[in-house]
Amino acid sequence: MLKIQDLKVSYGMIEAIQGVSFEINDGEIVALIGANGAGKTTIMHTISGLLKPQSGTIYLDDVDLTKTPADKIVKLGLAQVPERRRVFSQQTVEENLELGAYTRKDAKEISETMEKIYTSFPRLKERRKQLAGTLSGGEQQMLAMGRALMAKPKILLLDEPSMGLSPLLVKEIFHIIKEINNNGTTVLLVEQNAKMALGIANRAYVLENGKIALSGTGEELANSPQVKKAYLGG
């Protein structure tokens, strides 16, 4: 579904991504793990069109996203939950969700999606008239996920959904990711929390210094001595 080939991204003189290739098949959860500064968020921003690569291609089905403006990419069925959630804190929960459906036209279908999201995240429904900035970190993460789902994406990108959350909340968030996937959405998950990510991923890639260092199924990587040593604390 999503195929990244020989992607190179630079910030000025610094080559942050040095020729990365990987792919995500329909219906999978794929995790991209790696330390801080490995280039995970750069890849996510490039897929969503916020950054333009030096070279390489990113194909969503048969459209090259590197040649597509960011606002059109959402329309093609790719939504992202950005790192640090980045909800619109000055707008209400409901307005945030509406913005998630910005590219959709049919008001009736949009309100159906919103009802579905309120069913999966009852806390958001309770707080729908509240400003997003007043929510707790976990609630903001749920809002950011709900907001991305409002676009009805075929593939959902999640950048560090566990960041800054308590272990209990992390568990809940990962459970929800699994559910989103069970409902037919393909997921690309970027995480520093390798243990949780490998636990739910069908396949995973390890990113080191802007290159793919390892790849395999979630289970293989979770048992690989290299990954254990570097990312799983033992």
Partner: peptide, 23 residues
Amino acid sequence: KIGKAMRAVSEDSQAAQLMGINI
């Protein structure tokens, strides 16, 4: 809708782009 998009761009233009808003 456009007004809400304007407020979104004003608060966080990158996040607004991720919603499919044309900056």
